[in-house]
């Protein structure tokens, strides 16, 4: 039972991070390798909000997440917008540069010390016993529920809202979309904002549950194979990819060798890429666009 709980929590963590990769890739064909760093920035924003204000925990988390949305939009406006029209590879490499810049800035602004935002917010994290004897910490449960809500919200947003439909259109055929009067830059900015927002929510919840330091960015990188396994342009795929990778990881830690947990996501990725290079749920024509 505990095993199942562990798988669900890890899968939810990976899925919540991975959807950020998908959101940006879907509309702009850019792979954002600074996603881990942006997620870390979101978590550090919570540290600042918590220390600068006496807001109740929920409001503080909300404010930090809202600020992170702004950060994502700013990244697009001041950086990524300048790269439209250049090869996708240049944009990807730019996000690597952005990631390095952010890591440096985080240490400059917040120092490299371990932070415990839950403590400064006075947030308790008691474990909850579930049916069947499995235990889950309150914040892990919150993470699972949030992931469900975020995915539900994203599906609804992309399917039914005007902006969501425009985003899908821009992703499928940017030229046609632009001709029909869709503001591509606006769409891209929304995608960057949403992606940083969801990533930051994941970062904030992880930081609240188990503390925060600069290794957070590496956790973001670990969720990257998840997005690829599922298919970089499919939200459903990243949900399934998260489940596959998390299951493999937890089961291997439990029954084989905990040392493998670092290598396994990449081995699964290799296997999937060799059999179905476009990922489990990705669209096939994507391959030639990259």
């Amino acid at each position: 039972m505990q095993l199942a709980v562990n798988i669900v929590v890890l899968a939810a963590t990976y899925a919540l991070i991975a959807c950020g990769y998908v959101l940006i890739y879907r509309v702009s064909r850019v792979l954002n390798l600074a996603h881990g760093e942006l997620m870390m920035v979101g978590a550090y924003l919570l540290v600042t909000v918590a220390s600068a204000s006496a807001l109740p925990p929920l409001l503080a988390v909300g404010l930090a997440a809202a600020l992170s949305l702004g950060v994502g939009v700013l990244v697009h406006l001041f950086l990524m917008r300048r790269l439209t029209g250049q090869p996708a590879l240049a944009a990807v490499l730019t996000t690597i540069g952005l990631g390095i810049l952010l890591r440096g800035l985080v240490v400059l602004l917040w120092s490299a010390e371990q932070q415990h935002p839950a403590q400064s917010l006075g947030l308790a994290n008691p474990p909850i016993t579930l049916f069947g004897g499995g235990r889950i910490s309150t914040l892990s449960l919150a993470l699972v529920l949030t992931t469900g809500a975020v995915y539900g919200g994203l599906f609804a947003f992309l399917r039914f809202s005007r902006w969501g439909i425009r985003m899908r259109a821009a992703g499928q055929n940017p030229l046609l979309a632009a001709q029909r009067g869709i503001n591509l830059n606006g769409i891209y900015a929304v995608a960057w904002g949403l992606s940083t927002f969801t990533g930051s929510v994941a970062g904030i919840l992880i930081a609240l549950d188990s503390g925060l330091d600069t290794t957070m960015a590496t956790i973001g990188l670990k969720a990257f194979p998840v997005a690829l396994v599922g298919g970089l342009d499919s939200l459903l795929g990243s949900l399934l990819g998260a489940l596959i990778v998390a299951t493999a990881e937890v089961v291997l830690i439990q029954y084989v060798d905990p040392l493998l947990s670092d290598v396994v996501p990449f081995l699964i990725l290799m296997a999937v890429l060799l059999a179905r290079p476009w990922g489990l749920f990705g669209s096939r024509e994507e391959l030639d666009r990259v």
Binding site: G97, I100, L101
Partner: peptide, 12 residues
């Protein structure tokens, strides 16, 4: 940290 940040900036 400055070194790291500056390196990122130069790359960008």
């Amino acid at each position: 940290a400055s070194n790291y940040a500056a390196f990122g900036l130069v790359m960008i």
